[in-house]
Every structure is written in structure tokens, then in C-alpha cells.
Lab assay of single mutants.
Amino acid sequence: QGDIVVALYPYDGIHPDDLSFKKGEKMKVLEEHGEWWKAKSLLTKKEGFIPSNYVAKLN
């Protein structure tokens, strides 16, 4: 089961498979690959890669 993270900063995706998000948006982490994680937005239901240093895990 994936962790839920919250965006600390907004992110505008650079690549087509990036997931753009707004500050405060919550996402479910699907896979962790070093600095880039695959996640699904709980708001938009879209999936893509996010920079892990832009988010914090919720406990």
C-alpha cells in the first residue's frame, strides 16, 4: 500500500509523463525511484512522476 504525500510546493511537469500538482495537493505514492516517484493525485486521479523533494509523507 502506497504512502500518502502532500505537496510542499507547486510543480509544473516538464516531461509528458510528469504529474503536475499544486501546493497542498495530496497524492498516493505508487513507486519510489530515487529522486522521482510515480504517484497518483487524489484530486485529479492522474498518474505521473513527481520530484520527491517537493512532497512530504503524511503519517
Results as ranks from 00 to 15, higher is better:
residue 1 Q to C: 15
residue 1 Q to R: 12
residue 1 Q to K: 14
residue 2 G to S: 11
residue 2 G to E: 10
residue 3 D to F: 15
residue 3 D to A: 14
residue 3 D to E: 12
residue 3 D to S: 14
residue 3 D to Q: 14
residue 4 I to D: 03
residue 4 I to R: 03
residue 4 I to F: 08
residue 4 I to M: 07
residue 5 V to H: 05
residue 5 V to N: 01
residue 5 V to P: 00
residue 6 V to N: 02
residue 6 V to F: 09
residue 6 V to L: 06
residue 7 A to R: 00
residue 7 A to N: 00
residue 7 A to V: 02
residue 7 A to W: 01
residue 7 A to M: 02
residue 8 L to E: 03
residue 8 L to F: 04
residue 8 L to V: 07
residue 8 L to K: 07
residue 9 Y to K: 11
residue 9 Y to C: 14
residue 9 Y to F: 12
residue 9 Y to P: 00
residue 10 P to G: 12
residue 10 P to A: 14
residue 10 P to C: 12
residue 10 P to Q: 13
residue 10 P to S: 15
residue 11 Y to T: 00
residue 11 Y to M: 03
residue 11 Y to P: 01
residue 12 D to L: 12
residue 12 D to H: 14
residue 12 D to R: 14
residue 12 D to S: 12
residue 12 D to M: 12
residue 13 G to K: 08
residue 13 G to H: 04
residue 14 I to M: 11
residue 14 I to G: 09
residue 14 I to N: 09
residue 14 I to P: 07
residue 14 I to L: 11
residue 15 H to L: 09
residue 15 H to F: 11
residue 15 H to R: 13
residue 16 P to F: 08
residue 16 P to V: 09
residue 16 P to A: 10
residue 16 P to G: 08
residue 16 P to Y: 08
residue 16 P to R: 08
residue 17 D to Y: 13
residue 17 D to C: 14
residue 17 D to H: 12
residue 17 D to S: 12
residue 18 D to P: 02
residue 18 D to I: 08
residue 18 D to A: 11
residue 18 D to T: 14
residue 19 L to K: 01
residue 19 L to S: 00
residue 19 L to A: 02
residue 19 L to P: 01
residue 19 L to V: 02
residue 19 L to H: 00
residue 19 L to G: 00
residue 20 S to T: 10
residue 20 S to M: 06
residue 21 F to M: 04
residue 21 F to I: 03
residue 21 F to Q: 02
residue 21 F to C: 03
residue 22 K to R: 12
residue 22 K to S: 10
residue 22 K to V: 12
residue 22 K to P: 03
residue 23 K to Y: 07
residue 23 K to W: 06
residue 23 K to H: 06
residue 24 G to D: 06
residue 24 G to P: 00
residue 24 G to M: 04
residue 24 G to A: 04
residue 25 E to R: 02
residue 25 E to C: 04
residue 25 E to P: 00
residue 25 E to H: 03
residue 25 E to K: 00
residue 25 E to M: 03
residue 25 E to G: 01
residue 26 K to V: 14
residue 26 K to A: 08
residue 26 K to N: 07
residue 26 K to H: 14
residue 27 M to F: 12
residue 27 M to E: 00
residue 27 M to P: 00
residue 27 M to I: 05
residue 28 K to F: 13
residue 28 K to G: 04
residue 28 K to M: 15
residue 28 K to C: 13
residue 29 V to I: 15
residue 29 V to E: 00
residue 29 V to W: 02
residue 29 V to F: 04
residue 30 L to P: 01
residue 30 L to W: 05
residue 30 L to E: 04
residue 30 L to S: 05
residue 31 E to A: 11
residue 32 E to H: 11
residue 32 E to W: 11
residue 32 E to A: 14
residue 32 E to G: 11
residue 32 E to R: 14
residue 33 H to W: 11
residue 33 H to T: 10
residue 33 H to S: 10
residue 34 G to E: 06
residue 34 G to Y: 05
residue 35 E to P: 12
residue 36 W to R: 15
residue 36 W to Y: 11
residue 36 W to A: 05
residue 36 W to P: 04
residue 36 W to H: 07
residue 37 W to D: 02
residue 37 W to G: 01
residue 37 W to R: 07
residue 37 W to Q: 06
residue 38 K to C: 11
residue 38 K to H: 09
residue 38 K to M: 13
residue 38 K to L: 15
residue 38 K to S: 05
residue 39 A to M: 05
residue 39 A to G: 05
residue 40 K to I: 13
residue 40 K to E: 09
residue 40 K to W: 10
residue 40 K to M: 14
residue 40 K to N: 04
residue 41 S to T: 03
residue 41 S to R: 02
residue 41 S to M: 05
residue 41 S to I: 04
residue 41 S to P: 00
residue 42 L to N: 03
residue 42 L to R: 03
residue 42 L to P: 01
residue 42 L to K: 03
residue 42 L to Q: 05
residue 43 L to S: 10
residue 44 T to I: 02
residue 44 T to L: 03
residue 44 T to Q: 04
residue 44 T to C: 03
residue 45 K to H: 15
residue 45 K to V: 05
residue 46 K to C: 11
residue 46 K to A: 09
residue 46 K to E: 09
residue 47 E to D: 06
residue 47 E to W: 06
residue 47 E to Y: 07
residue 47 E to R: 07
residue 47 E to M: 10
residue 47 E to Q: 10
residue 47 E to K: 08
residue 48 G to W: 01
residue 48 G to D: 00
residue 48 G to T: 00
residue 48 G to Q: 01
residue 48 G to A: 01
residue 49 F to Q: 07
residue 49 F to M: 14
residue 50 I to C: 03
residue 50 I to D: 01
residue 50 I to T: 00
residue 50 I to F: 06
residue 50 I to H: 00
residue 50 I to N: 01
residue 50 I to W: 01
residue 51 P to Q: 03
residue 51 P to T: 01
residue 52 S to R: 14
residue 52 S to E: 05
residue 52 S to N: 08
residue 52 S to A: 13
residue 53 N to D: 10
residue 53 N to H: 13
residue 53 N to F: 09
residue 53 N to M: 10
residue 54 Y to M: 10
residue 54 Y to A: 08
residue 54 Y to I: 06
residue 54 Y to R: 08
residue 55 V to E: 01
residue 55 V to S: 01
residue 56 A to S: 11
residue 56 A to Q: 13
residue 56 A to L: 12
residue 56 A to D: 06
residue 56 A to I: 15
residue 57 K to R: 14
residue 58 L to K: 05
residue 58 L to I: 13
residue 58 L to D: 08
residue 59 N to Y: 11
residue 59 N to E: 13
residue 59 N to C: 15
residue 59 N to H: 13
